[in-house]
């Protein structure tokens, strides 16, 4: 395996992709066409590198199973993924925080029922968080619009990703606790990290440099 070995990269469409592309270009990759992917899912650079457009939650799946050598994923996705992947580079884009939010003026001790019910799209994160505080909670998994659950009395609080906090505010919820804050990570397949090391080592270093430069500018 030499320094020219082609690699495959899994990326999710959206703001994270837009923020990541300049870093890839700065690190010497050639993700041409990805700035406007349309319906195309696979892009190939002249040097043989491939870029896959996948759903955000699928990035770790592609990387773990070797469908891609590496990918970019938010900690929200990685925290829900059952296995730990190599994540050597902080891309310093895609800032978000995972928070507990409840109706304004309603504490968890004010709940009518006996158990704390938590509505969330992130059951592993929510469970680990409350367990670490010694609280056993009932998790209700939802796929979106979690803010509704406390309003209709289905849950006492929610655990959700917050970027600006506007959605919470407009629905009468307030952040009561930040679980963590993070930016996106580069994740790398275990086997690729070693088999394609000659290609990946300088690339990872260049990506971290590009991310740090960008991060210190913004």
């Amino acid at each position: 395996m030499n320094t020219q070995t082609p690699i495959t990269v899994a990326l999710a469409k959206g703001k994270l992709l837009d923020d990541t592309l300049p870093l890839f270009v700065a690190a010497g990759l050639d993700p041409r066409g990805l700035d406007d992917p349309g319906r195309k899912l696979l892009f190939e650079s002249p040097n043989g590198d491939r870029f896959l457009v996948v759903r955000a939650a699928d990035v770790p799946v592609y990387v773990e199973h070797g469908g891609a050598d590496m990918g970019v994923a938010g900690l929200d996705v990685l925290a829900e993924y059952p296995d730990e992947l190599y994540q050597p580079v902080d891309m310093r884009v895609g800032y978000c925080r995972m928070s507990v939010a409840a109706q304004k003026g309603v504490g968890l001790d004010d709940r009518p029922g006996t158990r704390v019910r938590v509505a969330t799209k992130y059951p592993r994160v929510a469970e680990a968080h409350f367990l670490s505080k010694g609280l056993a909670v009932d998790i209700i998994k939802l796929y979106g619009s979690m803010e509704l659950a406390p309003l209709v009395g289905m849950a006492d609080c929610i655990v959700d990703l917050v970027s600006t906090g506007r959605t919470l505010k407009e629905n009468g919820l307030v952040e009561v606790e930040t679980i963590w804050e993070s930016t996106a990570r580069l994740v790398v397949n275990r086997a690729s990290m070693k088999l394609k090391h000659a290609r990946l080592a300088p690339l990872l270093a260049a990506l971290q440099r590009a991310a740090d430069e960008q991060g210190s500018r913004s």
């Binding site: 190599y86 902080d90 790398v188």
Partner: peptide, 8 residues
Amino acid sequence: AMGRKDVP
């Protein structure tokens, strides 16, 4: 963290 090569 070392096991997942999580340098940050």
